Amino acid sequence: MLVRRWLDAAGIFDPALRAAYTVTCRRGLSDRAGVTWLGVMSVPPHVRPLLAAGAMVVLEADARADEGPHEQRLERFEEWVDAWYAALASGSSADPILHAAAHAHRVAPVKPTRALMEQAFSAPRRDLSFREFPTYADWQEYAAGSAGAAMVWSLCMRGEYGESGERIIREYGYMAQLVDCLADVSEDARDGRLYLPLEDLDRFGVRREDLEAGRWTPAMAALVAFEVARIIDRMPAVLEMARAHPWLYPFCSALDEYIRRLCTAVVEAGPSLLRRVAVPPTGPMVRGGMGLWRSAHVSSR
């Protein structure tokens, strides 16, 4: 019901296009505790289908790089990227997500550049030939270029954000990506990936064999606390910068809360962090998303 109202608000009445957007929005909003949910809820109703479509191009690419038989992931990923650029060039696609996204990019107030798209695709492509991160700077660059670029791309559907706005979005993107790497450390280890900076493992004396075996040690606890504190300490300054951007601030405020709760979940997980993915409680995130929904609805009148 809500998606139909959003499509009406966006002036999207073509039956095939409405069907494509419906599939896309439902896929994008399936995780109601995630960043996509918060992003869609933070914009006015007529923008929500467009933002969901932009986000789903990257999310689907990421899924193809992460899921399914390893020997097929690269081929499936590159097929998706090629299909996206073909849909963008032609304005249509047989795939509902790509069909909706091609339309969204045609009517978007800010046109994402090819360079921005390639930057967003670079992270899952890098994961397919995974290389570890020697330093925190390497890790930070990866996160800012992956989640940061993807968020900038999606928010192009909302409107102009300027250089300072892009810097804020990228900072939140990298912080969200970093804490997500901490939350997923057990899952990534089982997949043969170690995202934590090697210099930090050396600093705290974390042994790779303990991490891979799921053995929780005082050194690992100290490393997790250090990485979380490094994220938390940066957040107030970034949120303060966001106050100067009226339409961006509500999203940043909700994303700030999401990151904080995920940081808390990571720390509180303790030894279980090496056995399962840490997740924040969904209730507060849903309430936060609905608060954004009400705020965006009122501001759009």
Rank of each mutant, 00 (worst) to 15 (best):
W80N: 02
L248Q: 02
A55F: 07
I97E: 07
A55I: 05
R230H: 11
G68A: 06
L2S: 10
A63S: 13
A123S: 15
D200N: 13
V228C: 03
V228A: 00
M290E: 07
D82E: 15
G165N: 05
D256T: 10
A254W: 03
R230F: 05
S300P: 06
R4A: 15
M56H: 10
R193P: 09
I231V: 14
V266T: 10
R275V: 08
E79A: 14
L274P: 04
C25K: 01
W247V: 14
D200V: 11
G39I: 00
E118V: 06
A101M: 07
A176C: 13
A86T: 07
P15H: 06
D180R: 14
S299Y: 12
L194H: 10
D256A: 10
L178K: 15
A242I: 09
A225M: 11
W216G: 07
Y258P: 05
R76S: 13
E118F: 12
D180S: 15
T264Q: 14
L98C: 03
R73P: 02
A101T: 04
A219W: 04
R208A: 04
A16V: 14
S164Q: 14
R208Y: 13
V81H: 02
R234V: 10
W37A: 05
G270E: 03
T264Y: 06
A9F: 03
I259T: 09
S272D: 15
L211G: 01
T24Y: 02
P45S: 00
R4Y: 09
R5A: 12
E187P: 05
I231A: 00
D256S: 14
R190C: 10
L194P: 02
L292C: 08
F130A: 06
L2M: 11
M175H: 15
T24N: 09
L74P: 03
M235C: 03
I259V: 15
S295I: 09
S154A: 15
Y161N: 10
R4Q: 12
A296Q: 00
G28F: 03
R32Q: 08
R48A: 01
A123E: 08
P124F: 01
L116R: 04
G214D: 01
V3M: 02
A86Y: 03
G283W: 07
E71Q: 13
P281V: 03
A52Y: 03
D188Q: 04
R207E: 11
G34T: 11
R190M: 13
M1F: 09
G68P: 01
S42T: 02
V266L: 08
A176I: 07
Q140D: 13
D188I: 08
R275A: 14
T24M: 06
Y136P: 05
E71V: 11
A55N: 08
A86Q: 08
